[in-house]
Nucleic acid binder design. Structure first.
Lengths: 167, 167
DNA sequence: TTAAACTTTCAATAATTATTGAAAGTTTAA
DNA sequence: TTAAACTTTCAATAATTATTGAAAGTTTAA
C-alpha cells in the first residue's frame, strides 16, 4: 500500500466512523486530514483534498472549532486562514468525551431522573417504569462519571495500573 | 407528570438516543417500550403503542433479535408471537458493548493497523501518517479491550473498587 | 388438505440529513 | 476609501435513511 492509498483509506474509514463519535462524515474527514498533515491547511487545501465545496468546508470547520478539536492558525504574511487539529490522541479523547457528555449524556440523565421521579401510585406498570428508568439513570450516570475521570487523568499511575489490572 | 407522560417521554428520549448506541429510532423505541413493559408484547401491541407500521415493526424486531437484546416468547395457547427484552441493565450494557465492538470497532482497528503498517519511505508525511495512525490504533485497541473487560465483569470487586478509586 | 391467522419481504415513497454554489459579508493592503 | 482576497450564509438540491403497506410467504388448527 502506497502513502496515497493509506491516506485515502484512513480518511474514508475515519469519516464513516464519524457516526460513532457523533459527528458527520465531512467533519470527521476534515479532522482526519488535519490529523495526519505535517502542516496547517487552508480552506482551499481541504476543499481540494476531500473534493468538497467551499460552503461545506467552512461549515464543518466551524463545527470542529466549536468542539474545540480544530484551531485557526494565522501564518504571518498570509491572508488566508490556516487550520490545525489537536494532535495528541489522549487530549483528543478527553475533548470528545467531555463534549459528548455535555451534549448528549447529561440531557438524557436529566430526563431519566425526571421520568424515574414520577409519583408512585402503586400500580404494577408505574413501579416497573420507575424501577427500570432508575436503573438506567444510575448506570448512565456511573458510566459517564467514570469515563470522564478516566480520560481526564493523563495516563497516570491509576489509569496504568487499571489497564494492567483489567487486561 | 403522569404515568402516560413519563412513558412517552422515556420512549421518545431513548429513541432519539439510539444514534448514541448505533441503532435507529424505531429500534430504540421498541426496546424502550419492552424495557418498561410488565409483560411480553405482540407485534400488534407494539404497532399500536408506537404508531408504526407492521413492516417497520417486523424489521426492527428482527434487528433487535440479531443484536440479542430482544427474544421471542411463546405464550401457550396463543398464535401470535410475543417479545421481551433483556431487563437487566448490566447485561444489556454487556451485549451492546460486545456487539458494537464486533461490528464497528474491530474493523476500524484492522484498518488502522493496515494503514500504520505501510512502508516507511523516510519522508516527513509518511512518518507522520504512521505515527498518528499508530497512536489511534493503540488507543482504540486499549479502550475497546478495557470497556469489554469492564462490562463483562459483573460488578465484582475489581469494578467496584475501580469505581471507588476513580470517583 | 385448506383456509385463517399470522409474519416477512420489498418496491415505492416519505422524511431526514448533507452538500452545493452563488450572493452577501468581512477583512486587509494599498 | 476602495477593491481584491478572502469567509460565511442559506435556499435549492442531492443523497441517504427510514417507513409504509400490500403482496407473498409461513404456520397451525380443524
Amino acid at each position: 500500500m502506497t502513502y496515497e492509498d493509506a491516506k485515502i483509506k484512513f480518511i474514508s474509514t475515519w469519516g464513516s466512523l464519524g457516526s460513532l463519535w457523533g459527528i458527520n462524515k465531512a467533519m470527521a474527514q476534515i479532522q482526519a486530514l488535519l490529523f495526519i498533515s505535517t502542516k496547517p491547511l487552508s480552506m482551499e487545501d481541504i476543499m481540494e483534498e476531500l473534493h468538497i465545496s467551499r460552503g461545506n468546508t467552512s461549515m464543518n470547520l466551524r463545527q470542529l472549532m466549536d468542539w474545540g478539536i480544530v484551531t485557526k492558525e494565522l501564518i504571518p504574511g498570509e491572508r488566508k486562514e490556516y487550520f490545525t487539529t489537536e494532535k495528541d490522541v489522549q487530549e483528543l479523547t478527553r475533548i470528545i468525551a467531555k463534549e459528548r457528555s455535555r451534549r448528549e449524556i447529561q440531557p438524557v440523565i436529566k430526563v431519566l431522573d425526571d421520568v424515574s421521579s414520577i409519583k408512585n401510585d402503586g400500580t404494577e406498570h408505574t413501579k416497573e417504569l420507575i424501577k427500570q428508568t432508575r436503573a438506567l439513570h444510575d448506570l448512565t450516570l456511573n458510566a459517564d462519571t467514570m469515563i470522564n475521570k478516566l480520560v481526564s487523568q493523563k495516563q497516570n499511575w491509576i489509569t496504568k495500573s487499571l489497564i494492567k489490572l483489567i487486561k
